[in-house]
Simulated assay, not measured.
Amino acid sequence: MRQTEMPLYRQIFDDIKASIEGGTYKPDEKIPTEAELSEMYNVSRITVRRAIEDLSTEGYLVKRRGLGTFVCAPRMRRRLLQGGLPESFTDICRHNGRESGARLVKREIVLPRPDESDFFGLSEGELVLHIKRVRTADDVPIFEENMYLPYSQNQELATVQLESESIYQLMNELYGRRPVKNARVLIQSVGASSSKAGLLQVAKGEPLLYIATYALDQDDKPVYIGRQYFIGSRYMLDL
């Protein structure tokens, strides 16, 4: 039986991947444009685009709006449940040799969801503070962060500077409380909605890792609920 020839886009995929792994294209380096690659490989731009999309999905490349396509730094790794400790993103970046950042998207005082009322032990009428940020590593979006905290216990967080700040560190400085373990963790894979795709600079439908964490402090009291959406191609979770 005659062996089927490898598709052209896959040949380009393999060639660019080998160039990245071999160091020809280095982390954070911009690769040639689709037009330039099309000319280099003597193929259509559609063929090149398919290869680039697959390389982006597998975490080798990242498209930055208005700038071009760049080689990804090695995917960040995190042992979510190691020792039961919810490690801060700032520390994760430091361990991976990256610079952490944060862009505040929304800060609001809202009515709690049923699981938030139960976890925090809220009375009727009590509110929660919702903080939404996009967390970055070396200015590249990694995940959408949503933190929910009892407003009555965290009123200062409704007004303090949160750009590029560690909320873990702020809580420790303001209240002497710090998350030390997870009461429970929920993990599932979801597709990026239009709004999340826009915030994270990925294509709509790109796989995201949704992680919900219910964190306790050093006195076993509820601290926060986190609902995070990680870009799977830029973030690896070790259980």
Rank of each mutant, 00 (worst) to 15 (best):
K132W: 04
A35W: 03
N154R: 12
E58G: 03
S38Y: 06
Y60K: 07
Y214C: 00
Q82K: 13
V71M: 09
G23D: 07
S44L: 12
V71Y: 06
F119Q: 11
M6S: 01
V160Y: 14
P86S: 05
Q169V: 10
L200S: 11
V134A: 07
R135C: 00
K204T: 13
T24D: 02
G125Y: 06
K196Q: 15
L8F: 06
T159S: 04
E126F: 07
L239K: 07
L129Y: 03
Y235C: 00
N146Q: 08
D91G: 00
Y224V: 10
F143I: 05
L81H: 10
Q201C: 05
P179I: 06
E58R: 13
Y60Q: 05
K196V: 12
Y60G: 05
R177G: 03
R227L: 08
P27M: 08
A203D: 11
P207E: 02
E163R: 13
E116G: 05
P207C: 01
L199S: 11
Q3L: 07
Y235F: 15
D220S: 11
F143C: 06
T24W: 11
E173K: 10
Q201H: 15
V202L: 00
Y168S: 01
D54Q: 14
R50M: 08
K63T: 04
Y151H: 15
K26F: 02
G97M: 11
E163L: 04
R65G: 04
R133H: 07
M40T: 10
A215D: 15
G121E: 02
E156P: 08
R79N: 09
R10E: 03
F143L: 09
R107K: 14
A102I: 12
Q218R: 13
N42D: 10
I142P: 10
Y229C: 10
E165V: 12
K63R: 11
